[in-house]
């Protein structure tokens, strides 16, 4: 389906600045179809900024972004969703006063505008089957759900757009270890179903364990990249990010 030699997503020397500070100083990365790619690094390294640049929320100062061989530069957020990239934002950001069902329907906003009602209804049932906890609470306002349930709702809402590439921003942050584990299992399951995922995580160990490849970001630059096992064995990664994690696990 993809032209030869093309990744699903490719970023080339992407620079992004906001409030006068350059947050991304030339990021290059790619995501192949069917992969889980992890973006790891400390706070302020530019992980979320990268996702927001891809989603069209932050404008590029320089560089090139391509999805399926088409440039993403200068496109509006809704155009990027329509192309097949959906982001699950950090902090879940569910529509708290809307019901679970309404949140999921909103995820399919662009498809509903195209009157794909049958397809949306089908996906709604599929996603509720995938997250039985959400199904039980389908008529409850999203704000009344627990943190883990809200995260599942945010993922479900993003899936309602039928993305080819899912951007996940800190999906386990603030969740109890057991719940975080469930979320990571969900991510692995999504990949089995054919969704490509770009994952941003503060939990370096856990994210590299589910990911195929990873990029290590430091102050707006990629300082390391490679297959996950390689990164996990890397001395610098172990020293900088995993010291604490090893004790916790």
């Amino acid at each position: 389906m993809l032209p030869d030699g093309h990744s699903l997503l490719r970023l080339q020397s992407v620079r992004v600045a906001y409030d006068g500070v350059e947050a991304l100083k030339g990021i290059s990365l790619h995501v192949n179809e069917g992969e889980i790619v992890a973006l790891v690094g400390a706070n302020g390294a530019g992980k979320s900024t990268t996702l927001n640049a891809i989603s069209g929320i932050l404008p590029l100062r320089a560089g090139e972004m391509e999805f399926l061989g088409q440039s993403l530069v200068g496109r509006r957020p809704d155009e990027i969703v329509a192309l097949g990239i959906t982001q699950v934002p950090e902090g879940r950001q569910v529509f708290s006063e809307m019901t679970v069902l309404d949140n999921l329907r909103m995820g399919a906003y662009l498809r509903l505008r195209r009157r794909d009602r049958a397809g949306v209804r089908e996906d709604l049932e599929r996603i509720l089957a995938m997250f039985p906890l959400l199904d039980e609470r389908r008529r409850q306002p999203a704000g009344t759900l627990s943190g883990g349930e809200q995260q599942m709702l945010a993922v479900g809402r993003a899936l309602m757009a039928r993305p080819r590439l899912l951007l996940l921003d800190e999906p386990t942050i603030g969740l109890a270890p057991q719940v975080a584990h469930q979320i990571l299992e969900t991510i692995a399951r999504l990949r089995e179903q054919g969704t490509t995922i770009l994952l941003v995580e503060q939990n370096v160990l856990a994210s590299l364990r589910v990911a195929d490849r990873g990029y290590v970001l430091e102050t707006g630059r990629v300082v390391l990249e490679g297959p996950s096992e390689e990164l996990l064995r890397n001395r610098d990664v172990q020293r900088a990010y995993l010291g604490k994690d090893y004790e916790e696990v």
């Binding site: 809704d78 969703v81 950001q93 906003y109 662009l110």
Partner: peptide, 9 residues
């Protein structure tokens, strides 16, 4: 933000 990310202008 969430509205933007589901494709609402």
């Amino acid at each position: 933000r969430a509205a933007q990310l589901v494709g609402i202008r």
